[in-house]
Design a protein around this nucleic acid. Sequence first.
DNA 1: ACATCGATGTACT
DNA 2: GTACATCGATGTC
Length: 186
Amino acid sequence: MSIAPLARQFFDRPVLELARALIGVGLFVDGVGGTIVETEAYDAADPASHSFAGPTARNRAMFGPAGHAYVYRSYGIHWCFNLVAQPGSAVLIRALAPLAGLELMAQRRGVSEARLLCSGPGRLTQALGIDKSHDGLPLDAPPFRLVPGEAMGKVVSGPRIGITRNAEAPWRFGLSGSPHVSRRLR
DNA sequence: ACATCGATGTACT
DNA sequence: GTACATCGATGTC
């Protein structure tokens, strides 16, 4: 028997709550993926968020229904993958503990160490093969598969990475002690 | 351990 | 022209 995927309802809630609840959730693209161990929350009232200035061609998916993907290009090089929550808000997936498809991940990433496969938002999109073609797609249908997490360790929070505006807000969440987070939390 | 820098698409001034 | 939700390489302590 297979595990039931996360329902659309799971994503339709305040983004800070969702960002915390996503730690421990399984994320797979065409069967390749692992357990979410690090997230960041963004919403329309937050100056650091792409949605802050209202809808644009790039951020359109952030204003669409909950439970869809928002994918954008970062620094001209990487793709970043978000899960849309309530309108104008989304959760950036920053790191996974790899579980399935390690060989394909290593091939796509050009590295073999497990720690370097999915520990960072740009790294994990490369490892899972996520790009612009996934922008706006629903998360409860192929190629995506999101499954509820088992009981995990303690979830801790701290400031987000790589932003300048509203930089103090402790809206990054991570699994305490995980070797797979992009940067340690306290 | 930390600091700096290059690569470079997209949004915005 | 400048900033940016990044990464990897290189240089220094």
